[in-house]
């Protein structure tokens, strides 16, 4: 019986997964987060060019990374404010990549270990906030920057505070 579970269960689970994937669409299961499936390498629509880490010049250090984050934030907000939300695709993608790398950049910039958790958690919160905007753009809904503006600015402030 134990043998059956050991070998059959993974096989059956994998089979279930394949079946769930259906025709290859990337729909998320119910209760999964709205931005689920939105990876950095994902092609959003015909206007968007898929980018990878290799397409983004990595910041030289933590300070540089924060400057980039603020710059991307401003670009995204500007695109949304001017009624060109699709123009925010590229900065959103690049911002996601930079934020994913932020803990590593902090480590390599010799930011004390005690700060890594704050950086990691805050960077994830930021990614989630921007992903909400990105999901709305992908779904051709009007992104509501104002709804996340405060939390974004607070998070950016928290990341800046680390080096103070």
């Amino acid at each position: 019986m134990r043998f059956m579970f050991r070998y059959m269960v993974p096989t059956m689970l994998a089979a279930s997964c394949w079946l769930l994937a259906g025709c290859g669409d990337t729909g998320a299961p119910q209760n999964a987060s709205p931005e689920a499936g939105h990876a950095a390498t994902h092609t959003h629509d015909s206007e968007e060019v898929a980018i990878t880490e290799a397409d983004v010049e990595m910041p030289a250090n933590y300070s540089d990374a924060l400057a980039r984050v603020e710059s991307y934030r401003d670009a995204i907000r500007g695109a949304i404010d001017t009624g060109d939300p699709h123009g925010a695709h590229r900065p959103l993608d690049e911002l996601d990549i930079v934020l994913r790398k932020l803990p590593e950049i902090a480590r390599d910039s010799e930011i004390p270990m005690e700060q890594w958790e704050t950086i990691n958690v805050t960077a994830r919160e930021l990614r989630n906030a921007f992903n909400e905007l990105h999901a709305a753009i992908d779904e051709n809904r009007q992104p509501d920057y104002e709804a996340v503006s405060t939390s974004i600015d607070e998070s950016v402030g928290k990341l800046n505070q680390v080096t103070k």
């Binding site: 279930s16 997964c17 769930l20 994937a21 259906g22 025709c23 669409d25 990337t26 729909g27 998320a28 299961p29 119910q30 209760n31 999964a32 987060s33 689920a36 499936g37 990876a39």
Partner: peptide, 22 residues
């Protein structure tokens, strides 16, 4: 193929989406 299951797990590359019930 109009709708995917409403509960369960989906794997895409290295990402896994998991429903509350699963």
């Amino acid at each position: 193929h109009a709708a995917l299951p409403t509960t369960g797990a989906t794997v895409q590359g290295d990402l896994l989406m998991l429903s509350d019930s699963a």
